[in-house]
Amino acid sequence: MSQQFLPDNPLPQEVRVPDEMAVFSPEVEAEIDRHLAKYPLKRSAILPLMFIVQRERAGFLDPPGVAYLANRLGVRIMDIWEVATFYSMINTEPVGMYHLQICRTLSCKILGAGTITEHCTRRLGIKPGETTPDKIFSLSEVECLGSCGTAPMMQIGFDYYENLTTGKVDELIEKCRSGELSNGVR
């Protein structure tokens, strides 16, 4: 279910026992501890921890990050992959610094989501599912994000941008290019 961002390499990443395990700062470790404390079983924290590891490891779960998760949660490497590949927000491939996710479901669609996607494709030179060669932008079409009353919309990282027009999209893209806009990853 997760999107492939390397069109010339459609095979999933090689799954192997990595030689190295990711290491995180004491602050990140403390954040992870706070999540683990919520549950009677450690495994329940798998999704919150995946978001943290993905944020700290350049936007996706790399083998050292996966090894860390397995070790921290006391499960097998394969258990981590099993869950990671199910959820569309967990990246198993690298994504661009700014991940533009445009809602394509009905309410957004009838209010112009198609125009927004086409406009982004033209401006960025990439189709949905692709990343620019400079790794700044990834573009995706995603399913309903609960922003139907303020359609059309897109999400950049975790941040919502609503009531979009092509003009607003241009502004956003400019702000991404100049580094003014947060990439919404947290």
């Binding site: 279910m1 919520k38 079983l41 495994r43 329940s44 924290a45 798998i46 999704l47 919150p48 995946m50 978001f51 949660l73 869950v83 199910f86 959820y87 569309s88 927000m89 967990i90 995603v142 399913e143």
Partner: peptide, 21 residues
Amino acid sequence: HTGAGAYICGEETALLNSLEG
């Protein structure tokens, strides 16, 4: 608790599986 982008987790038993990791 956070989900991670799966509509099916709105179904209550799928939600519980997801919450169990």
